[in-house]
Design a protein around this nucleic acid. Structure first.
Lengths: 169, 169
DNA sequence: CATAGATATTTGCACTCGCAAGTACTCTCT
DNA sequence: AGAGAGTACTTGCGAGTGCAAATATCTATG
């Protein structure tokens, strides 16, 4: 019914989804065990912590966190309610706003990121050699860029100005 | 604050999540455009379609679809309500049940899977050479198995009988 | 065989997310 | 300047998911 080759390719895509889901669960549990709140929105906090001035435009953050604008609004609402993030209106464009880590959010990340990094180190050390890891990462980047481009192309009927320089994590 | 190496590794993990999310969105849109219902539960239907007798134990299906047992119950409920899947009590163990494709579900998949496969073909052809694809797939498999094992180990305090032969996709 | 402890699955409840519509602001063209 | 189109973000609402507790069934042990 389905050719051998297509079977393998379907499996490859399945493996991608399973890997991502598996690692997400793993990190989620680990973050839970080590103190701090283990929201899905951890991702958002990390990206803010790694940005200039600990702030990012909402739309930029939405793309990076793989959320829709609406999903991001709610997520930032929750983080703001916890006092970890605050909104700052963008002076250049009053439609837009920045999400910015509060000092309390910054403190939380200072405490949490090292733990998270050590969890990541452990996984990658266990699974890959350094060379393999670099190779794997470059494959992922290609795939990510491709998916991003195709999704943008679908959203905006014919906008050619795809920014190729979406910042990483 | 964070070392260069750790930075890259964090990026790698971020890329994994973004790739998975990006492809999921892409396939979701494509499935939507070509007729059939584009539920997230498409994944479940595919796995059933590729199993012996078009049926799978609920618990097995939950692992394969990266859902919790409770999440799977609801998902199968919905599919059953649409007439695509039915429940069959397991004769050997009356606690358990099988989810099985109905003839209508089978028909839907016969019609839908080829389209899905062609979408996958297009992505992989565009992004990878055959060799790279094989390499990438083997990396993903290692990562998936690792995450699965570690998550199981966490769930069952000290059960060593981890089945290494979880079927693919 | 009776009972305690595991296992497979299902519900109650709360939370998160996406889509479509709404609001506020900016840009363009005349 | 002013109308119209486009952009950035926010809400109403419905749908999917996980966690914890409940239910039904199996299994091991005395």
């Amino acid at each position: 019914m389905t050719s051998e080759a297509s079977d393998e390719r379907m499996t490859t895509v399945g493996l991608l989804f399973e890997s991502a889901a598996g690692l997400r669960r793993l990190f989620h549990r680990q973050a839970e065990m080590s103190g701090a709140s283990a929201n899905q929105s951890f991702d958002i906090l990390i990206r803010l912590a790694r940005s200039d001035g600990n702030q990012l435009r909402m739309s930029e953050l939405a793309v990076q966190a793989s959320l829709t604008p609406s999903g991001l609004t709610r997520a930032v609402d929750r983080l703001a309610q916890q006092g970890l993030v605050s909104r700052r209106i963008c002076p250049d464009d009053r439609r837009g706003s920045f999400a910015q880590l509060t000092s309390s959010g910054r403190a939380l990340m200072d405490q949490t990121i090292p733990e998270h990094l050590s969890h990541i180190d452990q996984v990658l050390d266990d699974v890959f050699t350094p060379d393999e890891e670099a190779q794997f990462s470059s494959y992922l980047r290609r795939l990510r860029d491709y998916a991003l481009e195709r999704n943008l192309a679908a959203g905006l009927p014919c906008d050619e100005s795809v920014d190729p320089c979406i910042s990483d994590i």
